[in-house]
Nucleic acid binder design. Sequence first.
DNA 1: GTATTCATTTGATTTGCGTCAAAGTTTTCT
DNA 2: AGAAAACTTTGACGCAAATCAAATGAATAC
Lengths: 244, 244
Amino acid sequence: MQPTLNTLEGLKVACSNCNLRELCMPTGFNKDEMQKLDEVVEKRRRVKQGEALFSSGEAFTSLYAIRTGFFKTCVISEDGREQVTGFQMAGEIIGMDGIVSDHHNCSAVALEDAEVCVMPFSDIENLSRELPGLQRHVHKIMSREIVRENGVMMLLGNMRAEERLAAFLLNLVQRLHARGLSQSELVLRMTREEIGSYLGLKLETVSRAFSKFSEEGIIEVKQRYVKIVAPDALKKIFNPQTYY
Amino acid sequence: MQPTLNTLEGLKVACSNCNLRELCMPTGFNKDEMQKLDEVVEKRRRVKQGEALFSSGEAFTSLYAIRTGFFKTCVISEDGREQVTGFQMAGEIIGMDGIVSDHHNCSAVALEDAEVCVMPFSDIENLSRELPGLQRHVHKIMSREIVRENGVMMLLGNMRAEERLAAFLLNLVQRLHARGLSQSELVLRMTREEIGSYLGLKLETVSRAFSKFSEEGIIEVKQRYVKIVAPDALKKIFNPQTYY
DNA sequence: GTATTCATTTGATTTGCGTCAAAGTTTTCT
DNA sequence: AGAAAACTTTGACGCAAATCAAATGAATAC
């Protein structure tokens, strides 16, 4: 480890004046509690595009709050098949897969240059014994991940290609919108192949579904740029029943 | 609610002399700590075959430790498609999906008459601030669920029908073996349709895969009874690479 | 600025699983 | 015990997505 390479020297690392606070930290703390919270963030770490924040099998030490950038998490089977298990953006917490065995079960790779807050898990555990609000927050974050994965299982087990892609796009744009970005335009940070891996499809199938949506006037696509022209049509594809 | 129907009166509810303790509770506690742990289990509750322990949308109050019986958990999409997200047996903890929103996101249905220990989550949170061992255990249980679901995503996204069924059987028999049962024989508690839902397959496909394994002499099947004759062959199907 | 690599699109063909159907078996109900 | 309902198996056929293939476009390196 070469901390000087990964740590941002001279930058005040503090949640209390971070504009992502409401996304990744619990709310409703007083000044004293907020100060303690600040100390959980040991340091920051930059991860270049294509690099791994952590890799499957590595010792688990910390959770990471994404400050900037975009990640994918993936598991690899023994015979080399890769499954993307999620895409994560600013304000989201990753690394919880490592708690159960003290080793990471998946890898987190930056899809664009990124910066994360390193939060040693033992510190989180210590402080969350003092601060019930933090304790509850940690529980909620893990529960949210369980619920998210339930949703992916529904996608993979029950939905057809176009339904999966519609759900994927709606989910992405909704999360970006929650971060102050457009609710109709987005630039994909991942390849068709990575989308396909996440959705249990081959890249050609993903490409065809994009083209189909485009032909139908539901979206406009130019490579990684996507504009959602008819969100209701997408929602209808994702969930036919609601629109009888 | 009719507590008298669900509570087992006159039974001493205590983890300290429960033979499943090592499966669902943390180890290494002294007498005093063990006694506190006992108090987390508010009561027990019986669930008849086919009944729901909790249902999607219901208010979340407690986690449940399965004492006897067998459950499935499932989510239902708005248009009515059901996805089985897991099968749970004695010693396993369910209900963590409800923490994030204070409402359950999935339903837990008993596949045979069952008995669970009801553990109010607020009590768990309170006590785990006192007992770091319990705190760590709660984190591990949730992390284990995340990791399990990662594995299911790999199954659903990358594997073919027979690989999925092989993985399913190996996983089931391994968990049963950890509970003192045979590592080669099992009686399925779920229908072909429920297996199919979990594995993202139709019941006919599951049935055909069973028949194929049977014809090849890998397993013996008679309805719900399954005997694994050639476990290595199953492992090879699940994970071709390892056996070059 | 050109070459090389990587990503995407689109077409032709194949295939694994789904769908439909019917018969057999087991369990449940009366 | 007998009838009804639920579950399972097996076969024939269809289709959605995978595979194979080739061309185009974009990004990166030299």
